[in-house]
Amino acid sequence: MTDELTDAVTLADRMQRVGYLVDDGLATALFFAVRLGQPVLLEGEPGVGKTTAAKALAGALDTTLIRLQCYEGLTASEALYEWNYQRQLLAIRLAESRGDRLRDADLFTAEFLSDRPILQAIRFTGPRPPVLLIDEIDRADDEFEALLFEFLGEAAVSIPEIGTFTATRRPIVVLTSNRSRELHDALRRRCLYHWIEFPAAARVAEILRRAVPAAGGALIASAAEFVGRVRTLDLDKPPGLAEAIDWVSALSMLGVTELTGPAARRTLAALAKTADDRDVVTEAFRVLDEPDSARA
């Protein structure tokens, strides 16, 4: 499947078939990641579709998605590999029952490794290279970034007791970041890069039509325009595409065909995610109580 991928247009078409609308810039960055074998770093505000892009890429390529969710305090044993101590203990007991004695070298071999997402991607044996999503890398510590340098540059992981595991086929690596902190230059140098903007109202409407096919065209158009307007306000958590989809889904579930103030207030929980934002968005709903002529 990856060998058949001849250009970014083909990739964009395949991603569209699995339900993800991708613009030329993002499609090109992902195409290079696939064909050049280089990791790609996707940055943007929360909710613009970075994680979903990696999932859609795996779907478009008909391959396995391996996900590593980053967080503060993430360690090598959770991300790269760890030793299966229970299996090692069992091997020791079996050896003792036979009157044998195992050396350390016998216990620290590949058969006693527990693959975590990164080593799993390196040792993947499926028909196509997997897509490895390293999600929200900015949530991990600076020290964790350093653990990734060898993998991102050489598609390899060094294990002191064994040696180096190198991928026979490079996994397709997608890193995402919400820019909650600045990433190390050494990590950026190892990656392709693309910034994902929140889409314009017309594209948001197109995404909503695909995500919530039961919703009417008038409702979708109004909701897409309103979400764009709300995002310009001083909010703690500006609504992203996920919130927009949830909001339209909630409105549609209530049988709403036209966006009005009362309907919007009933579904506020899908759009505003903090107490302060609820107040700001509720105030913004006032415009929906006005006649269409007054809104214009």
Rank of each mutant, 00 (worst) to 15 (best):
T257E: 03
A270G: 13
N178M: 00
L254N: 15
A215S: 06
A201K: 10
P262C: 01
P171T: 12
R265C: 01
S158P: 08
V248T: 04
R229K: 13
D279C: 11
W195A: 12
A284K: 13
T176P: 03
A263G: 06
R188E: 08
P199I: 02
G228H: 12
F165H: 06
N178P: 08
I245H: 12
L208E: 00
A156Y: 10
T267P: 07
T232P: 01
V204L: 14
R266D: 13
E161P: 11
W195S: 13
D289G: 14
R203P: 05
E161K: 14
G261V: 03
R231T: 10
E197N: 12
D289K: 11
T267R: 06
K273P: 07
L241H: 08
R179W: 01
T164E: 14
L187T: 10
R286C: 04
N178Y: 05
W195D: 11
A224C: 11
F165W: 05
R265P: 04
L288Q: 07
W195I: 09
T164H: 12
D289L: 10
A242D: 08
R286F: 08
F198S: 10
V227H: 09
S180E: 10
H194C: 04
D279F: 14
G228P: 03
V248D: 01
S177P: 04
E197C: 07
M253D: 12
E258H: 07
L187G: 04
T176L: 01
L251A: 07
A270M: 08
A205Q: 06
L219F: 01
T168C: 08
A156V: 10
V204K: 03
R286A: 14
V287I: 14
R169H: 08
L187Q: 08
A264K: 02
A242M: 00
A223R: 04
L254M: 10
L219I: 06
A250H: 03
A275N: 15
R169D: 13
L235P: 10
A200F: 02
R190K: 07
L254Q: 15
V174D: 07
W195L: 09
P262D: 04
R286W: 09
T176M: 07
A186G: 03
T166F: 00
R188G: 03
C191R: 06
L241W: 09
L268C: 12
D236Y: 11
L251T: 07
D277W: 01
R181E: 01
T168M: 12
V248S: 00
I196V: 10
S177T: 04
